[in-house]
Amino acid sequence: MCENCSKSDLTLLNDVLKEFASVRGSLITILQKAQEIYGYLPVDVIYYLAEKTGNTPAKVMGVATFYTQFRLTPVGKNLIMLCKGTACHVNGADAVEKAICDYLEIKDGETSADGLFSLKTVACLGCCSLSPVMMINEDTYGSLTPQKAVEILTEIKAREEA
């Protein structure tokens, strides 16, 4: 095994494989379920799934790196999905992004040093009337300003640290 291969508990995949392994064209679904289980797609999981679904690892990797939903590294405790759709862009999403990046000292796609936040910009969350919008985990925050975004993050941080 190579140095960046973790040792994941592969038995967690049993149910998923039972349901989908033999269903043609289910690779994406299987990867989605695997990511739900592990929070991301560890390398050994990808190899294991390749073996179990009859695909080559290159093929599974090709799919896993094609879609933005899949992550090959763990994410922070809170995933910030900042919408960069047209409406959000027109209403100042760039400034919000800059404020978040400055506050967390990270760039898009990175995780903050304390592991609390990961930032991912997304194409459109479809809440255009509330633009600019971000989702943190399951919650949506609309009509953002740079200040408001930082306040929200500060609040979550305080809650996490408490």
């Binding site: 390398v43 080559t56 690892p57 790196t65």
Partner: peptide
């Protein structure tokens, strides 16, 4: 099926599987 496309768009590369070492 050893070689595959990895990534998307401009950053796409061709790699044999993906364990770099």
């Amino acid at each position: 099926g050893i070689l595959g496309l990895v990534g998307r768009g401009f950053d796409t590369v061709i790699k044999p599987e993906f364990r770099d070492s």
